[in-house]
Design a binder for these strands. Structure first.
Length: 803
RNA sequence: GCCGCGGUGGCGGAACUGGUAGACGCGCUGGACUUAAAAUCCAGUGAUAGCGAUAUCGUGGGAGUUCGAUUCUCCCCCGCGGCACCA
């Protein structure tokens, strides 16, 4: 019986002492940078989901090491965050204490399943030596004009008492605590991610990422190309600028709509005749929650502005102006031209308020067949000189025409908003800015970093938009570094996403005191060759960190514009009952328990065997038993007679097929099929009485990415010296993969009637003769005309007969 | 609504550029070992009919292309994920 407890411990100790996974200084070897998302060290401990990602990166890293690469594979802690802070509030203890305890527990748990991380490079985002550089990067962004302060309506979570980025609001609720998010006007720090919107889209093209992640990111950034058109307000100099992607429908515009929060209203104010009615409406809107406002099913409402008319510059027609909350102030210009005949929303609104609907696009040329709303492209009607053109033609002609006259501008809009970057909480990186009444926002000097998070008495957020740091007068009140006058520190902290936006750079040179990482090392190791992680980061972390990397690249700090060459995401592991694992259901699988019952190798192998890596699958105790059987059977090979005698041809054939398939499958992240091939090989070997020593060695190597402890033990039993991971991946021989005999399928009119065993590469004439003599075939073709014979070497013979 | 992915035995899932559907694992059935059980080992296992050789059906449904379709084309149904009043 395989004693996993003893053997796993033995090799884990060996790896620690041997520093087996330390990145080598050897420059002759090509680098390979494997990365897995570093965990937030929660109080709940390691989840099997973490194990899945960390095992996958480990399989890949070990494989690449054996393939001769100098592999960088490390681990760290994304340790700022709300749970630690909430713990601190409740227990009146520093969140760092709780965080350290959790980190220690996570480290122990991760080490207990034996992944090959270079622990000498471990990082922790809450360590001042780390966040010094997070702050430094902020200052670079500030210097580049990419970090700015602005008073704006922001997403505010009343329960977490902090502002949130757009990416942290899901269905109008706080991603963390599910409270309804409110809009609050506050002066806040933003990062100008929108400057990179275009690059963030186009550079996706060259990345080896799953298509669905690319589309998700594109959708999130939401590029749309169109034009801005100026409508002038009758009897005034005021212009209302609208954004549209469908300038081809301009002649169907029967009114203009302004968002309730739009600043244009102030300009128009002196002309408005129904101010009371408008104010009443605005008041009503204000009281609606964001969720209510964006509910698609809600009735559209609005109010006509009396006394003011807008003029369509294309035909000089006068149209009415409305304010309505179906138009968003935050997108485009905050105003739209309404074309009810060709836009669903405008159509709905026009129906409700009985407004004119004017058809200008038809599906078929010159035929007005539209009864309701037609939103597709088509041919123009009633559009003066543009009549008869198709939509796309009309769009470019109209833009040219309008640009010539000065009332149209080509414009690209993005849904992506700037990243709200300040949080009114304690447990985050302090923003390294001093606010001086005469000099404005003054950045700290590099030599003043890290700006260490000070001790406070009370970790509770004030709720009034100030972080707990604001209460420490001695920390807040400083002299302005520029003018020497009285000044105050910025008291907001950075969001949790900050530390994780660049951690992959720090692994490369984690102890560097002078730079975030040396240029030389960055050049050597960037980009990350393969990045494993979870689906929840498709549009948040992945987008933020690409942005930071791009900004740093523009500053000449990072040598590559895209940080992650290849991205692989894993599917969830559900509980045995098919539900999500949760304390509430009491169905959580704790890796500690699995390891003590079955061993680390069995857990790793099982998780990799559960199904396709990207798929969701449910934990099955019976399944893990099967893997346990497999591991014991592998061990039983050592009880056979180990010889130097050569293996038989069939064995070599299967062995070499396995070498080929396991290598290819690991490369393609098809771990479960790699393992099934290893099972096929084992099933073949299990019935033998004697077994070749070298064959055991090769088998151990093929298994080693999945079951490193077992493989080390086998390797050393077979006389290997040192770690198996310092050896090399076996090569396969094409000759040995070829089968000597092959089975050929014989089909008659497409139906399988017989299989013939023949020599490899047998000729058509030979196989046809053989088939014609087969009783099973004779039965079907006797007395029939053969119309056609299709022969594919080593595969099949298809005979077509006349019925 | 839009975009993306998927639907294969009792279950997880295999199947290369169209070429023997169901690899591998689980489960189940029978047998060996055992006083017995567990563990282990051996054999079987898509459905239907047949003692069997074998035949027919079979990859969500319907049509099509083809000697041949899980794979390609069109239509439809269902499930999952993302986005969603973005003009």
């Amino acid at each position: 019986m395989y004693n996993f407890k003893e053997i796993e411990k033995k090799w884990q100790d060996f790896w620690d002492k041997d520093e087996t996974y330390k990145v080598e200084e050897d420059d002759s070897k090509e680098k390979f940078y494997t990365l897995v998302e570093f965990p937030y060290p929660s109080g709940a401990g390691l989840h099997v989901g973490h194990v899945k990602g960390q095992t996958a990166v480990d399989v890949f890293a070990r494989f690449k090491r054996l393939k001769g690469y100098n592999v960088l594979n490390s681990m760290g802690w994304d340790a700022f965050g709300l749970p630690a802070e909430n713990f601190a509030i409740k227990n009146k203890k520093h969140p760092g204490i709780f965080t350290q305890e959790n980190i220690n527990n996570f480290r122990r748990q991760i080490k207990s399943f034996g992944p090959s991380f270079d622990w000498s490079r471990e990082i922790d985002t809450t360590d001042p030596n780390y966040y010094k550089w997070t702050q430094w990067i902020f200052l670079q962004l500030f210097e580049m004009g990419l970090a700015y302060e602005k008073e704006a309506p922001i997403n505010w979570c009343p329960s977490c008492k902090t502002g949130l980025a757009n990416e942290e609001v899901v269905d109008g609720k706080c991603e963390r605590c599910d409270s309804l998010v409110e809009q609050k006007n506050m002066k806040q720090w933003f990062l100008k991610i929108t400057d990179y919107a275009e690059e963030l889209i186009t550079d996706l093209n060259d990345l080896n990422w799953p298509e669905y992640i690319k589309t998700s990111q594109k959708n999130w950034i939401g590029k749309s190309e169109g034009a801005e058109i100026d409508f002038s307000v009758k009897d005034s100099d005021i212009k209302i600028r609208v954004f549209t992607t469908r300038i081809d429908t301009i002649f169907g515009c029967t009114y203009v709509v302004i968002a309730p929060e739009s600043k244009i209203l102030l300009q128009l104010e002196y002309k408005i005749e129904n101010k009371d009615e408008l104010n009443e409406y605005l008041e009503k809107i204000k009281n609606k929650s964001d969720l209510e406002r964006t509910d698609l099913n809600k009735d559209k409402s609005g109010v006509k502005i009396e006394g003011v008319k807008a003029i369509n510059p294309f035909n000089n027609e006068e149209v009415d102006i409305f304010i309505a909350d179906y138009v968003l102030a935050s997108y485009g210009t905050g105003a739209v031209m309404a074309v009810p005949a060709h836009d669903e929303r405008d159509f709905e609104f026009a129906k409700k308020y009985d407004l004119e609907i004017k058809t200008v696009i038809t599906k078929e040329k010159d035929i007005d067949n539209s009864i309701s709303c037609y939103t597709e492209d088509g041919h123009l009607l009633n559009s003066l000189e543009f009549t008869g053109m198709n939509s796309s033609q009309a769009r470019s002609r109209m833009i040219e025409f309008g640009e010539g006259k000065g009332f149209v501008q080509r414009k690209i809009n993005y849904k992506l908003r700037d990243w709200l970057f300040s949080r009114q909480r304690y447990w985050g990186e302090p923003i390294p800015i001093i606010k001086c009444s005469s000099c404005g926002n003054v950045p700290l000097e590099k030599s003043d970093l890290p700006l260490v998070l000070p001790e406070v008495e009370n970790y509770e957020p004030s709720g009034n938009g100030e972080s707990p740091l604001a209460n420490i007068d001695s920390w807040v009140n400083v002299k302005c570094p520029k003018c020497g006058g009285d000044a105050k520190r910025e008291t907001n902290t950075m969001p949790q996403w900050a530390g994780s936006s660049w951690y992959f750079l720090r692994y490369i040179d984690p102890k560097n005191q002078e730079e975030l990482a040396s240029a030389e090392n960055l050049k050597k190791f960037m980009p990350v060759d393969i990045y494993f992680g979870g689906a929840e980061h498709t549009t948040v972390h992945l987008l933020y960190s690409r942005f930071w990397n791009k900004a740093l690249c523009n500053k000449g700090i990072v040598p590559v514009s895209e940080p992650y060459k290849r991205r692989v995401q894993h599917g969830l592991i559900l509980a045995e009952d098919g539900r999500k694992m949760s304390k509430r259901w009491g169905n959580v699988i704790n890796p500690d328990d699995v390891i003590s019952e079955y061993g680390a190798d069995v857990m790793r192998l099982y998780i990799m065997f559960m199904g396709p890596y990207g798929d969701t699958s449910a934990w099955a105790t019976s399944g893990i038993n099967g893997i346990s059987r497999f591991v014991n059977k592998v061990w039983n090979l050592t009880e056979k007679e180990i010889t130097e005698d050569e293996s038989d041809k069939e064995t070599l054939n299967i062995l070499h097929k396995t070498i080929k398939k396991v290598g290819e499958d690991i490369e393609n992240i098809s771990f479960h099929t790699a393992i099934s091939q290893l099972m096929i090989l084992l099933n073949h070997l299990s019935v033998k009485e004697k077994i070749n020593k070298e064959l055991v060695n090769i088998f151990a190597k093929l298994l080693s990415p999945f079951t490193p402890h077992l493989s080390e033990e086998l390797f050393s039993l077979m006389g290997g010296i040192g770690s198996i991971f310092k050896s090399s991946w076996p090569e396969y021989s094409e000759d040995l993969i070829k089968d000597e005999k092959v089975k050929i399928a014989v089909q008659i009119n497409g139906k399988l009637r017989d299989t013939l065993e023949v020599d490899f590469d047998s000729e058509e004439s030979f196989v046809v003769e053989l088939a014609k003599n087969s009783e099973l075939v004779k039965r079907w073709i006797e007395g029939k005309d053969i119309i056609k014979i299709i022969f594919i070497k080593n595969k099949l013979l298809s005979i077509v007969i006349k019925q």
